[in-house]
């Protein structure tokens, strides 16, 4: 009984040890390569789980992290089509896509080596692609002419298709982008000068606009006033005319004796005209001062005549 237990125990240990030596796990985040005496024999891509191999030194296992990583190129000056110098900082998101290629191309799968190669590849691509585009395609006063994203797409295309980094290095580029778009120091000074000039113009424009607007407002108000007063004048005239028309009705009544009416009107006018500040020069010949000179001849009327 005791011996059996011990035997089972020992067998178990041997099996576990054997499994440990002969098996390996490939995680979801990894790809793996198995070499037999240095020759690659099996590749595991997108194939996670428990795998087996002959123990070392017959077969050897190389695992690669297949997740995405970022790699940034250094800030570098390049020129666009039309020889405008710009300074860009390009980055890529890459992953190991083909373990075998990666293993062969990068000194038995050295990530450091791969990065070094990729960096020089990026700088090539960056210079080539940017060199094919005018600066006005990066920044343009007409937004529809800006093809910034397309240029980034071209860079991605260049790396994956033209340069075929997958075949060359076992790498897949997921995305390429420009992190910084800059200009040289001297150009920045020129831009400042232009910006200042731009602002000066804007300052002047703003003040002129303000003045123009103010003038428009007051002019509008004045013309409105003119219009309003004209309209009021018209209404006033209409009211006066109506008054005159009404008065005219009464003039009809005067027709009963126009002579008297006109006389009365003269009298009325006279009174009004001579109402104030009048200096009157009187001739002693004229009535009523003539009385001062001569007594008028008055003959009493025969009252009987009256009673006739």
């Amino acid at each position: 009984m005791k011996n059996l237990t011990i035997t089972i125990f020992i067998i178990l240990i041997v099996v576990i040890l054997g499994l440990y030596l002969a098996s390996f796990q490939v995680r979801e985040t990894e790809s793996a390569l198995v070499t037999r005496f240095g020759e690659p024999v099996r590749v595991y891509i997108d194939d996670p789980g428990l795998k087996f191999k002959w123990p070392r030194p017959i077969e050897r296992l190389y695992k690669f992290d297949s997740r995405m990583r970022v790699l940034e190129a250094n800030l570098g000056e390049t020129t666009t089509k039309g020889a405008v110098p710009i300074i860009v900082n390009t980055y890529v998101v890459w992953k190991i896509a083909d373990p075998l290629q990666f293993f062969n191309a990068n000194e038995r799968g050295s990530v450091t080596e791969a990065k070094r190669k990729l960096l020089s590849q990026i700088s090539n691509t960056q210079n080539t692609v940017i060199g094919q585009h005018y600066f006005s395609e990066f920044v343009n006063s007409d937004p529809s002419k800006i093809i910034f994203e397309e240029i980034e797409g071209e860079m991605l295309d260049d790396l994956n298709t033209k340069q075929n980094v997958k075949e060359k290095y076992g790498i897949e580029i997921k995305t390429v982008g420009i992190k910084q778009l800059k200009i040289s120091e001297d150009v920045s000074k020129a831009v400042f000068a232009r910006m200042i000039a731009d602002r000066e113009r804007k300052t002047k424009e703003t003040i002129a606009e303000g003045n123009a607007e103010a003038t428009t407002i007051t002019t509008d108000a004045n013309s409105m006033r003119t219009e309003l007063l004209a309209a009021a004048e018209a209404r006033a005239k209409a009211i006066q005319a109506e008054g005159d028309a009404q008065a005219a009705k009464f003039y009809k009544l005067l027709e009963e004796d126009p002579g008297l009416a006109i006389f009365l009107q003269y009298i009325e006018s006279l009174k009004k005209i001579l109402e104030k500040n009048t200096v009157i020069v009187l001739s002693t010949d004229a009535y009523p001062l003539s009385i001062l000179k001569d007594i008028p001849v008055i003959v009493p009327r025969d009252p009987n005549k009256e009673k006739k």
Binding site: L270, N277, V281
Partner: peptide, 14 residues
């Protein structure tokens, strides 16, 4: 009325 209201009156004897 007119004479009465006048401020100054001047008499002239030709």
């Amino acid at each position: 009325e007119v004479y009465d209201k006048a401020e100054e009156k001047v008499m002239v004897q030709p």
